[in-house]
Design a protein around this nucleic acid. Sequence first.
DNA 1: GAAGTATGTAAGTGGTTACTTGCTCTGTCG
DNA 2: CGACAGAGCAAGTAACCACTTACATACTTC
Lengths: 197, 197
Amino acid sequence: MDIRERLLGAAAQVYAEAGYRGATTRRIAQQAGVSEITLFRQFGSKEALMLEALTAASRTAVLALPDEPADPVRELSEWSRGRFETLFRIRSLLRKVMSEVEEHPEIIDCAKSYPRHPVSFLEQYVRRLQARGWAADDINPKLAAAMLVGAIFTEAMVRDMIPEVYSYGIEEALDGYVRMFLRAIGCEAGSVETRLP
Amino acid sequence: MDIRERLLGAAAQVYAEAGYRGATTRRIAQQAGVSEITLFRQFGSKEALMLEALTAASRTAVLALPDEPADPVRELSEWSRGRFETLFRIRSLLRKVMSEVEEHPEIIDCAKSYPRHPVSFLEQYVRRLQARGWAADDINPKLAAAMLVGAIFTEAMVRDMIPEVYSYGIEEALDGYVRMFLRAIGCEAGSVETRLP
DNA sequence: GAAGTATGTAAGTGGTTACTTGCTCTGTCG
DNA sequence: CGACAGAGCAAGTAACCACTTACATACTTC
């Protein structure tokens, strides 16, 4: 593999493990299997390396929801599961970024290369459900989306930290969240099928 | 004020700003307005100081919910608001703890001096709603509690980081969460009053 | 007033950090 | 074969880290 890419990958991994201050150039070079001097010759400084590494690492595509809702339970279950898995996979890196944004605001700018935030995908989906009469009109779509996404986000962040609180299985949890979410927005289990042509 | 307490407070504050590695003994002593030597004479080492400071800082009482539910909307709104304010106030410290648990597992042990976790308070409340027939029986109380608490937690953690996503007001958000939560567990707006004697 | 306690200043310990300099090795290309 | 580019090695820079020693100063307490 290319040495630059090895260094970028190692930088992201070590940063996820130890944060900015803990990600020493020595440790990154060792992880990449190259000498520390090569790191500086390639990127000039630790800051330049970390910025490029985090920008590359935050390029994770957000799963889309169908434009035409057909089976909300299935579609939302799959989407929630994908959302959780993405967040859970990068949870260490996310926790470091969250804790260091105040000190290094520039690191969130490269993480904000997101074209759109997951909440707005779900928000649009809720709007479409409302448009077809499958969800109550007095629901604020943005708030509803934020609630489900927030619950999933918390599972991904906290689950492995306080296991005695989050004792249930993740499958069970996501299914439960989706079911309660649909009830909350007035999209009951049987109501969709009966309204289908 | 006592010098020990000043140092403990300063340690917690600097830790919340800069994390463990960034909370240098020099900076803590400066923040407390004492000399660095006094810090070491009082606590022996940075580690001992930080452990004591974080243990003290995590002693935040969890608001209780009434044993006898009477007005779910009001009771849950007040509880959610208190929960959010607590989390939002210590959000910087929480973010640091979350990002450093993997490296320093001992810091979560002192934070776990919680007698009970907020989720279990809400879980018990949902059980009591179910016992009186105010909530659906097919709802998993622990999951329901985790969903609302997770949504509030996410608001407290992320709100000030990506304001363009969380554009609505926090009052509006908490009210919406409580309303959707009650719908989700089958505790509709009018259903409680009609069942009251 | 003497003794003891708590705090301060000054200076320095060894270790680690990001980063640099000078030189050597190794592979590729003409 | 010879030129050259990219990588490594050894050593060293100044700054910062947690922590220590030696000594002076204030304040209380008997």
